[in-house]
Design a protein around this nucleic acid. Structure first.
Length: 434
RNA sequence: GCCGUUGUAGCUCAGACUGGUGGAGCGGCUGACUGUUAAUCAGCAGGCCUCAGGUUCAAAUCCUGACAACGGCGCCA
């Protein structure tokens, strides 16, 4: 019977015989005593192996075993101030299951080296903490939608057309045809709502942008929703509720992990206490103007400007009604909106602190004439969108949807400098290994 | 795509300006040590100085050109 290390480290087991198994975290020793610390998924504990207390062969093994050797240990749990964490196991049995070669990851590590050795680096306490938060985030997304009457609906990943105008697609040879890896489920989701009403999914998304930034991946996970009968004001509220729910779940389940990441938890707590504001693009520009940042109406907000807007807020903010000219073809014009030019029924949600876009969504245009006009403007052939147009012919309804960048959300929640740490094996334009 | 930075031991980096027998710390190996916290001490091994040209008696170092990685911008979640 083996017990998780975190569970063993308590008064409950003090003085009792325990068995744990895991990997050597650090080790040091002298001729007659060895102090390996051993980790598993739950924690780290120091072991003392004294010559004479274990069979001689096992003591030799303890002396020789390098970092990351796998071990099974039996011994007595003792509270001891000299041990990191306050508890240690005084071993009576120390079995090395697999001796490790010299571990490539040591105290001096470059970002590049850690990415080269990602398959080993994910064992680090830091990556383990992030992956545990990710586990909560993903679970919370499924729970949120399922408990609010959404069906999970899975789209094809191989898709014949592009959707977001301008974005770059990964081409895939599909027998003797050409197809692309999905960069959104949206066209298929818009078909799905006529069957299921409210739907969601979480799936890999691919963007072949050569973006070398701390907030871009070429392969990332997007959690999307689409709902029939829903218009812009309502869909933005769904997005706010979803993000709040995810944060509450993380705060409920991952306090220790956030502490290990040295995340200021109060920045997340405040997001549960206050409502997330909604402003328009035009109002955003006015906020920037007050700070002396002049942006011409009609230009898209750049990273710098998004950061500028978010200086005014300590919770996520929904920004609506961007100029239609710079928006994708399917985002409809809002005829009623007061703005210097045509604006779309669309929104982004920006995260506080870092200012990154964590959500993007919109109402969907139901006019075949409008869709055709803007597709042609983007240089697209509307004939390639026949099924999408069909949806407007057979009982069309107002509908909306959005996508959450799962890694971006994790990046903000964990306070990560780089989005690459929000996923175990990041894919970027310059790295496909390991 | 544009701009910038960096390529030297298994890892992290000095050395380059001013050309002249390639260095340190960490880690590994050998040995000492019965309470270590990044243990300590002594010794040993370890190199196509990213690659290709050029200048020079002589190039890690100077010049030219590739390649790669990293970062910023744009684009986006």
């Amino acid at each position: 019977m083996f017990t998780d290390i975190a569970r063993v480290m308590s008064q409950e087991f003090s003085g009792k015989e325990v068995s744990v198994r895991g990997w050597i975290w650090r080790t040091r020793g002298s001729g007659k005593i060895v102090f390996p610390t051993v980790r598993d998924h739950s924690g780290v504990i120091q072991v003392t192996v004294k010559k004479g207390n274990v069979p001689d062969g096992q003591f030799e093994g303890a002396l020789k075993a390098l970092i990351e050797s796998s071990v099974e240990i039996t011994g007595t749990l003792k509270a001891d101030d000299r041990a990191p964490g306050g508890f240690e196991i005084q071993a009576t049995g120390f079995r090395v299951v697999g001796f490790a070669d010299a571990y490539p990851i040591q105290k001096d590590q470059s970002e590049e080296w850690l990415r080269e050795n990602r398959h080993l680096w994910i064992r680090s306490r830091r990556m383990v903490a992030i992956m545990k938060v990710r586990h909560t985030v993903v679970g919370a997304i499924h729970r949120f939608f399922r408990e609010n009457g959404y069906y999970e609906f899975d789209p094809p990943i191989l898709q014949p057309n592009q959707c977001e105008g301008g974005s770059t697609l990964f081409e895939v040879k599909y027998y003797d045809m050409q197809t692309y890896l999905s960069q959104t489920w949206q066209l298929y989701a818009e078909a799905g709502i006529f069957a299921l009403g409210k739907i969601y999914d979480m799936a890999p998304t691919f963007r072949a942008e050569k973006s070398k930034t701390s907030r871009h991946l070429c392969e990332f996970w997007m959690a999307e929703m689409e709902a029939a009968w829903m218009e812009l004001p309502e869909v933005t509220e769904v997005a706010k509720a979803e993000v709040k729910f995810i944060i509450s779940e993380v705060l409920k389940n991952n306090r220790e992990d956030l502490a290990l990441l040295e995340r200021d938890v109060s920045k997340l707590e405040i997001c549960l206490e206050k409502p997330f504001p909604t402003i328009t693009y035009t109002e955003g520009l006015e906020l920037l103007k007050k700070d002396g940042m002049m942006v011409e109406w009609g230009k898209d907000l750049r990273t710098l400007e998004e950061e500028g807007i978010m200086k005014h807020f300590d919770t996520p903010v929904v920004v609506t009604h961007y100029p239609k000219e710079i928006m994708a073809f399917y985002k409809p014009v809002d005829e009623k909106a007061a703005a210097p030019g045509p604006v779309a029924k669309c929104f982004d949600m920006l995260a506080p602190e870092c200012g990154i876009e964590i959500v993007g969504g919109s109402e969907r245009d139901t006019s075949i004439a409008e869709l055709t006009k803007y597709l042609e403007k983007d240089g697209e052939n509307p004939a390639n969108y026949q099924f999408y147009m069909d949806l407007r012919k057979y009982g069309s309804v107002p509908h909306s949807g959005y996508g959450v960048g799962v890694e971006r959300l994790i990046q903000w929640i964990c306070g990560l400098e780089n989005i690459k740490d929000a996923i175990a094996f990041p894919r970027t334009s310059t790295r496909i290994t390991p």
